[in-house]
Structure formats: structure tokens, C-alpha cells
Amino acid sequence: MRKLIKVIVGTLLPVLLLSTMGASSVQATIAGPSTHAQSAALIDVTSGRILYSKDGDKESRIASLTKIMTAIVAIEEGKLDAKVKVTPSSFAKEGSSLYLKLGEEMTLENMLYGLMLRSGNDAASAIAEHVGGSEEGFVLLMNKKAEQIGLTRSHFMNPHGLDAEGHYSTANDLARLTAYALHNPVFKRIVATENKSAPNPNESWEYSWHNKNKMLRLYEGADGVKTGYTKKAFRCLVSSATRDGQQLAAVTLNDGDDWNDHAKMLDFGFEHFPLIEIATQEQPVQNMELVTGRGFKYPLAKGEQEDITKTLVLLDKRTQDAVTENKQSTDPSFGLAGRIEMQLKGEPIGSIPVYYKGSYIPPEPPIADATIGGIGEVTNWVSAWKAVLSRLLSP
């Protein structure tokens, strides 16, 4: 059994490593639009490909763009219907506020709307204390999440973004964070909301929040994400938009003309880098009794499709026998034969599983589980492999 495990581990390890290698390492080479930003980035949300970057790795203050991380950590770690209490340390925070009263309680979901639509610093602190046990505990979760999704030039010191030494990120990291967060349906719904009402336990009137993000009203297809400003960070903005099934996210830091610059950046992405279908689910593999386990799309400039190469990587026979032994026909690992690796000009951009014809083909993952080009990439087949490995190594 030990020899079998060694064979399986040796074969599986390259597969599992695919979840951390990234399409985002391949950046577009077409000159992007001019902007007034100190740094900027544009990303395709589905693939994680950076389409445009201006000083994208420059570490900068990010103001309330911090709340993108606050929101996704709270959504993943908390319960939306749980009541969040306003404590003395979260009450009356400086800067933008929801003006929550001391001791007031509100569901986490409603508080997240206040956080993202009105940028409430009091909401940020209350959420952090509720989810993390303390603001410091929550900040640990923020930095852990940054590490998990590969943000190598980001560090968080608080959940609201008020200026603090050691609190920074980059345009490229914020683009990757936003792409990751937009694959979460709760986050996606909240940041696309223009107006939201919430119960007020202390008054006869309800809270009514109007989204500060003017892009939702200025740009066709806009559906997010967050504004930011401090006296040291200046104007910061992350926006997103969807057209013809493709979602892009733009980031600018220290930009005095951000609304117009974001429109130019998004226009540039949609015009020059449409999402191209490279493979479809259950597509036959040439000269093999195999079919693809899911489809694959990638944003490509004119002429780039000719530079796409595909490599078929098959599991060895002993590994295949091990993973199919005693499996039910509806197990995602049943019939798994290997994978097709996709490269653009020699750089990896993603992979898709392949199955033997006639075996069970799991359904395409929803957008929340789809490949994000190395940004916290999660796929059904990778998850299945991890489960198989866990079962084989268990006593």
C-alpha cells in the first residue's frame, strides 16, 4: 500500500500545484489607455489575466478599498443572519460612518451593505470584532486570506483603511483580490446594489443607503465595486462591469479623474481582449477516447489565439486504477484520465480535466467555483483529487 501511495502522491502533486500557478502571470502587452492614476490595473475576472497595468506593483495606501478584503473575509467566515453589536471601540469611528448607535444590533448582511455602499468605518470595526473576536483577530484573518490568494505585496493593519503604517497594497494585488471576491455571489450582489434599506431599531425610520460608487450610474454594465479616500491615499477606486458575459475590474490609486479613467480602462478591455472560448465541455480529444470535463475561456487580443498551445497530461495506469477502485459512477474522480494544460506563448494560463468517454462527467462548476487563473483557483476536479488523496492516506 505504501508503494501505491508514493505513486499516487508523485502523480497528484503536479495536479494540485496547478491551483497555485496563475494565468495572471501572463499580462497583456498592448499599450493601455493613459490615466491620471499613480498606479492602475485592469483584470479579466473569469481568468485572472491582468490586461493593463501602470506601476501595478507599487505599494501604496489604499484607503477604503481595504473594505473589499473586509467584506469577503466576513462573508466567508461569518453568518449573514447573525446579529452584529456596536461596541464602544467600534462606535463613532472617524471618517465615513453609518452613524450606528452604541449597543445597536444589525444583521451581518445588512451591515455589509452599509460597509460597501456607504463605506461605514463604524460598520467595518463592528464586523471585525464580531467575526474575528477582536479587530486584531480579524486583521490576522485578512492577512491570512491575502496569503492564500497570492497577494504578495499587500499587508493589512485594520478593517477600514484609515491611514496606518504597514497598511498597503498595490493596483495589481487589488485587481486579483477583486476578481477573487467577485466569484462570491453574496459579495457580487452587495457591490452591484445602488440603494439599500435596513431596519433601524432605535428610530421610526429605516436606514436608507445610496451607493457612493457613481460608476454604477455612469457606465453601461457597471456592477461594482468600491470607492476610497483619505488625505494621504487621495482618491482610490475599484470598479467592475459586465458586457456580453465578460466581467472586468479596474483599479486606480491616487487618481483625480477616476470616473473618466475607469471608463477608458473598461472600454479598452472590452474592445481589445474579448473572452474567447478555447474549449467546450465534453469536447472530444483528437485521436483519443477522451472528452473534456469542462469548458475553458480566456481573454485574448487579436492574433493571440494562434499562440495558444495545449498539452495532454495523462495519469499513469496504476494511479487510474487506484482512484477508480470502488468509486460510484457519480463521483467526480470516476473516469478521470488526466488534464489538458493551456499555455499562451509558453506561459501557463489554466487547465481542464479530461475523462474517458462514457464515464460520469461532473457538471461545469458555477462561477464561484470556476478557474480564476491562479487566484484562489478552485475546481471540482481539483477538489475531487484532494478528497481522493485524503481517503488514500487516511488510516
Rank of each mutant, 00 (worst) to 15 (best):
E325Y: 10
L51Y: 10
Q246E: 15
P284Q: 10
I367V: 11
E104T: 04
I308S: 06
I349P: 01
L151S: 02
N202A: 12
E194G: 01
T29C: 02
N110K: 09
L115E: 00
H160E: 07
K231T: 11
H130R: 00
R235V: 06
T87F: 02
P363A: 13
A123V: 02
V388N: 04
D261V: 08
H183Q: 09
T242H: 10
P201M: 07
D331A: 13
K345M: 04
T230G: 13
S240D: 12
V86I: 15
P332G: 09
I149N: 00
I68F: 00
G373L: 03
P363H: 07
R294L: 07
L336Y: 10
S24C: 09
L98M: 15
G150N: 08
A301I: 07
A37T: 03
K85C: 11
V225C: 08
T242F: 08
A370Y: 09
F296Y: 14
L151W: 03
M157R: 14
D321R: 12
E129T: 01
K3S: 13
A63I: 06
W259V: 10
L177A: 07
A175N: 05
V378Y: 09
E109Q: 03
L393I: 06
L51Q: 08
Y355P: 08
G373W: 02
S60G: 00
G166C: 12
V86S: 05
K54R: 13
H183P: 03
D244G: 04
S125Q: 11
I62V: 14
N260V: 03
H155E: 13
N184D: 15
N121Q: 02
A124Q: 00
S96N: 01
N121W: 02
Q27G: 10
K386S: 15
T252N: 03
S351V: 03
E271P: 00
F270N: 11
T11W: 02
A301S: 15
E203P: 03
A387G: 05
D255R: 05
H36R: 10
R49I: 05
V139N: 03
E109R: 07
A233I: 13
K6E: 15
R235W: 08
G346D: 01
S89R: 12
L13Q: 13
Y113R: 04
D321W: 01
A368G: 06
N143F: 05
L13K: 12
G78W: 00
S169N: 10
K145E: 09
S97V: 06
S39M: 05
T309K: 08
V354E: 02
A370L: 12
T87R: 05
Q247P: 01
M21H: 08
L140W: 02
N202T: 13
